[in-house]
Every structure is written in C-alpha cells, then in structure tokens.
Design a protein around this nucleic acid. Structure first.
Lengths: 157, 157
DNA sequence: ATTTACAGGACCAAATCAGTCCGATATGAT
DNA sequence: ATCATATCGGACTGATTTGGTCCTGTAAAT
C-alpha cells in the first residue's frame, strides 16, 4: 500500500515532538516516551535509527540524550522516511534494479520511475517545521507543493 | 514504506498490457498470464480484483475474458491501486479515523492528511494511457503533473 | 566507581503478503 | 441437453515483514 509503516509514523511523531521543544535542547529516550505516550523500548529504537540516519545527534552518558541535528526547516519528510525504513521507492525496481525478472520486457517501468520522482519531489518540499508548527493555520505544505509544482526542480537526481 | 505491494505492481502491469491491446477486445486470464510472463493463478486473482473494482468488465463462459471498463485515459493510478489493495492512505488515521489512541494529542495528524492529499492528487493526474504508451518519448506523466499550475507550453527536458 | 543513557543486535510473536487451489456458476458450441 | 471453457468467490498455506522487547556493551558525568 502507499502507506507509511507504523514505525515510520511513530518516528515522525517523535521528530515533531523534538522540533517543538527548545532548539538545541537534549532529551533522553525515557522522557520522550513519556511525553508522546509511546512505548519506551520502541521510542529508544526509533531514536537510534534517526540518529544513525544523521537526523539526530546523540549524547551518551549521564545528561545525555538526543537533539535535532539540524533546524526543523532543514529536515525533510523523505529524509525521515529514509532514516526510518530505508530508501523510498514505489516499486521494487526503483530500489533494487535488476531484481525483477520481467524488467527487460516491462513496459511500465520507466513511467513508474517518473511517478516515483514526482512523489518524492512533492514530499521533499515538506519539512519537519511544517509538521510541527503549533500554529497550523499557515499551511505551508500544501501551498508550497502546489505552487512549486510548476518548477521541475530536481528531475533526474 | 512508500512502496506498492508486488500485487499492485503486477496488477498495474496487467492493466497496461490490456490497454496496449485493441480497444474493447476480450482476453482471458491464461492468455494474459502467458503474455506477461506472470504466474497464471496470480493473474487470475488480480484480474478478479480489478473487475470487482470496476476497472475491468468480465465475461464468463466460453469465449469469455476481461476487457477494460473504460478507455485507458479515463483510468487513473489511484483507482487501480484502490481496486488492488484498498483505500490509499499514508497513515492509519487517514483510512480508519479513531483507531489510533494518540489521535487526540497527535500534532502531526492534520499535516499528514494534507500530505496524503498532495500525493493522491499527484497520482490521480496519471492515467493508464500514460503508463501504457508504447511510444514513451512523450513523457506525459511527469510533465502533466509538474506543469499543472502553469501553461504546459514547452516541455523541455 | 557508580550511575545514566545510548549503541547494536538478537530475538519472538503477530500480521501481512504472495501464491495456490477448489467448487460453483455462467456462457457458448456441439 | 451436454460439454468445454472461463470467471467468481472463497479458503488455505508458506514465507516474509513488522511491531515490539530485551540484553550486553560502551561512553560520559558526578
């Protein structure tokens, strides 16, 4: 399905939670778990993944914890998804070219690659700042996406 | 992940295959399976789903088979996905509101609903005709999507 | 040294997915 | 009428993925 896994969903909630707190502040896994009402081991696991993905910086030891590696407006949705569940791709052959036996005779492959790019582009215009904005009145995501859609920014990677 | 299941992937390949054949022509499951090199029982199952979703019309009995219910340019990608794997939604709460315990305190829900809409809109501008075009030189999908706001005068790549 | 907290896996149960198979029913031809 | 052909609608199974937990090691601060 075109659905985020629950893991990813939770992970983004965590990121948004951190984004709402004071910039540069450090929070440990237990605290985040309590505040978000999510199971602690799960939170721990997710924060680790996000740190490994370079979106959080981790500080070990007493007084340790996690903080955002960049400002919320510098962190995009596809980055978070990639950190949590690996590369984004609508079809298998986007991620692992050659794994599909029908690849040679497949007529829909190239169109899908394009579609994949469209979706990715749309998502990459949405940042963590958009998601965690307490005042959601200024709906940046939607407007920025449909406005910039006319600009074929980064097609071709 | 933001990934189509293999089922959906195959299903769309089948649709594209039918779209490439003569309009209104009828093809049975076995024939489609042979042509697409996909396992026959699987093809049968997928065609059934697509028929139930109203994208194909089925004819029973001898000389029976499936044919497109509409012209390729009237069938969109989200329709196919929906027929093959149910309603599209990036998050659980898009599809089943109320199922998530954190819903009340969730700060990212509404933004996600918007994002979901953006993705769906992008996909619904892509039709089966775009996917099955034998001459893929005219890359309709991407340009039609990215040029939606402005006038699609020149399609320079 | 002790406590706190992350790092990195191993691990398991549950759910989903891919794929198969079967009996029932409808249609066309003989 | 009968038979062959196809879809219809399930049930069913094995494999994979996911969600979630737990444990051992390591780094930092007091």
């Amino acid at each position: 399905m075109i659905k985020l896994s629950r893991t990813t969903d939770y992970g983004i909630v965590l990121m948004a939670h951190l984004a709402e707190r004071e910039a540069g502040s450090v929070h440990n896994a237990r605290e985040v778990a309590e505040r978000t009402l999510l199971p602690a081991p799960m939170v721990s696991k997710l924060l680790k993944s996000l740190a490994r993905g370079g979106l959080l910086v981790s500080n070990r030891g007493s007084k340790g914890g996690y903080s955002l590696a960049r400002t919320p407006c510098e962190i995009t949705v596809p980055e978070m998804i990639a950190a949590l569940e690996g590369p984004i791709g609508l079809t298998e052959c986007t991620i692992h070219p050659g794994a599909c036996r029908q690849e040679a005779s497949c007529h829909v492959r190239e169109p899908w690659q394009r579609i994949n790019q469209v979706v990715r582009d749309a998502l990459s215009r949405i940042t963590l700042a958009d998601l965690s904005s307490p005042d959601f009145g200024a709906i940046l995501p939607l407007t920025s996406v449909s406005a910039n859609a006319a600009n074929p920014a980064n097609v071709g990677e």
